[in-house]
Design a protein around this nucleic acid. Structure first.
Lengths: 198, 198
DNA sequence: TCCGGAAACTAACGTACCTTCGTTTCCAGC
DNA sequence: GCTGGAAACGAAGGTACGTTAGTTTCCGGA
């Protein structure tokens, strides 16, 4: 046997990403092995190397792509919002929650597999994440300057908000008691109540 | 060579726990290997088996012990607080934040290594964690009944609060810009502002 | 002081993992 | 219709891991 009828490079590469996402999310990167990954894709372990340089590179590529999508879609959401600060803040929060529900596997991996990366890749990902956090801090600062927000400590508040909003991807499952729109609404109010001027 | 001068069972067992905590926190359970663990303790890999039944049991024992400490110290903090609901709620939040700063390694592991456990151990730990979460939900319900809190959804709110408060153990380091007391204060206000009746 | 067991050592077993190699078959552009 | 490269295969190399076995030395209670 050799090349299989109907095989296609792009399709297999995508299947590998999808399978890796599922397995890393379920077991963690270190616990995932390439035999299981190949089996999930439906090919032999050695065939993986036609599409990826190695196990490590697979993870860092996936994480970098994820961070870029997160940053780009965040910018799009902010651009689509009105110019008023509170509109942009609501857009940021709403987008964050929605994104974390819809791509909770990518998010979970990006948050908790940083330590599995080689130092160079980690530095790149951390830089992207810092940029994301800085975006929220900028909005908070703006709100304070405008007198619309009351924030004791920008940095701690931003971290606390992000932790709260990110938490949803540890328990949310589609088809649960509450729908996405309701959860976005609930989290937006919880987050804003914590900082809104009274 | 054989038994080393000055060796002591209890001391070595404690050193193993301490070293495992450090290594699992840094690399994850699956990525930690017993050779590195033994080296960190200063003994040979096989000597570990004088103190632990195996790698898997080490993790589940550590996690169970951690959850019991968390639950017990929470009860103590609640008992020490005044009878008023808001006092107990503040005690819960303050204790949670402080505990998560002081034992951030244990907490981090307990939160993110659940998937590394065998199903039976995982069920035990999850049950303990559910009890902890239920404790907070109980306080929120009480507050709503008393008219002191405004909570749209008890369950989601409790999860959001816990995520926010737990987030501190991902970035807090002793000796940072803010002290423990300040961080407890900041987080308490952020959490309460989100739910307090206005 | 003596002795049983605790606690360490060295050596090694079997497995499982990531990766490489060489080969074979299929697809696509000319 | 040919042909070069893409994409799969089977087999295996080399390492690292968890764990066991057997042995040796030290501690602490009688």
């Amino acid at each position: 046997m050799a090349r299989i009828t109907g095989s296609n490079g792009a399709r297999t590469a995508a299947a590998i990403r999808r399978a890796a996402l599922k397995l890393i999310y379920r077991q963690g990167f270190a616990a995932m092995n390439l035999r299981d990954l190949a089996a999930e894709v439906g090919i032999q372990p050695s065939s993986l190397y036609n599409h990826i340089p190695g196990k490590q590179a697979l993870l860092s590529d996936m994480m970098r792509e994820h961070m870029e999508v997160l940053l780009d879609s965040t910018e799009a959401a902010l651009a689509a919002a009105g110019p008023a600060l509170m509109d942009r803040l609501r857009a940021f929060i709403g987008h964050h929650v929605l994104y974390h529900m819809e791509r909770r596997q990518e998010v979970y991996i990006a948050n908790f597999e940083l330590r599995a990366l080689d130092p160079a890749s980690r530095a790149r990902i951390v830089a992207l994440r810092n940029g994301y956090e800085a975006r929220l801090m900028g909005l908070l600062e703006e709100g304070v300057a405008l007198g619309e927000l009351e924030v004791a400590d920008i940095r701690v508040t931003a971290f606390a908000m992000l932790a709260m909003l990110t938490g949803i991807c540890t328990w949310y499952r589609p088809g649960g008691r509450l729908g996405k729109a309701e959860l976005v609404q609930l989290h937006t109010e919880l987050a804003l109540n914590g900082i809104r001027r009274r």
